[in-house]
Lab assay of single mutants.
Amino acid sequence: GHYRIRINGREFEIRGISEEEIRHLEEALRNGADEKILKEIVDRLRG
């Protein structure tokens, strides 16, 4: 998958993330885990 997200007015492209991972992120966001989720995304993109 290849997705664009906007955070604090800046747009980011996220590549190589699966539909299942996105559902997991959405679930966590609904549970209020904003900073933790951003850290997970950044860590994943770093490799």
Rank of each mutant, 00 (worst) to 15 (best):
G1R: 06
G1P: 11
G1K: 07
H2A: 12
H2W: 15
Y3S: 01
Y3K: 01
Y3A: 02
R4N: 03
R4F: 14
I5V: 11
R6F: 15
R6N: 08
R6A: 05
I7G: 00
I7Y: 04
N8D: 05
G9Y: 01
G9I: 01
G9Q: 02
R10K: 13
R10Q: 14
E11R: 02
E11D: 07
F12Y: 15
E13V: 15
E13S: 03
E13A: 03
E13T: 08
I14P: 00
I14C: 03
R15F: 13
R15K: 09
G16Q: 05
G16I: 08
G16T: 05
I17C: 07
I17S: 03
I17R: 02
I17L: 07
S18C: 04
S18W: 02
E19V: 12
E19A: 13
E19F: 12
E19D: 13
E20R: 06
E20P: 06
E21S: 08
E21C: 12
E21A: 08
I22F: 14
R23V: 08
R23K: 14
R23Y: 12
R23P: 03
H24I: 14
H24E: 14
L25I: 14
E26V: 08
E27Q: 10
E27D: 11
A28H: 13
A28V: 13
A28E: 06
A28G: 04
A28I: 13
L29W: 05
L29E: 03
N31L: 10
N31S: 12
G32T: 04
G32Q: 06
A33E: 08
A33G: 07
A33H: 07
A33S: 07
D34C: 06
D34M: 10
D34A: 15
D34Y: 15
D34G: 12
E35F: 14
E35H: 11
E35C: 11
K36H: 13
K36S: 10
K36L: 12
K36G: 08
K36D: 10
I37N: 06
I37Y: 12
I37D: 06
I37P: 01
I37A: 10
I37L: 11
I37M: 10
I37H: 07
L38S: 01
L38K: 02
L38V: 08
L38Q: 01
L38T: 02
K39Q: 15
E40K: 08
E40G: 12
E40H: 08
E40M: 14
I41D: 00
I41N: 01
I41G: 01
I41H: 03
I41K: 02
V42Q: 04
D43N: 12
D43T: 09
D43P: 03
D43M: 12
D43R: 14
R44W: 14
R44G: 08
R44D: 04
L45H: 06
R46V: 15
G47V: 12
G47N: 11
G47P: 11
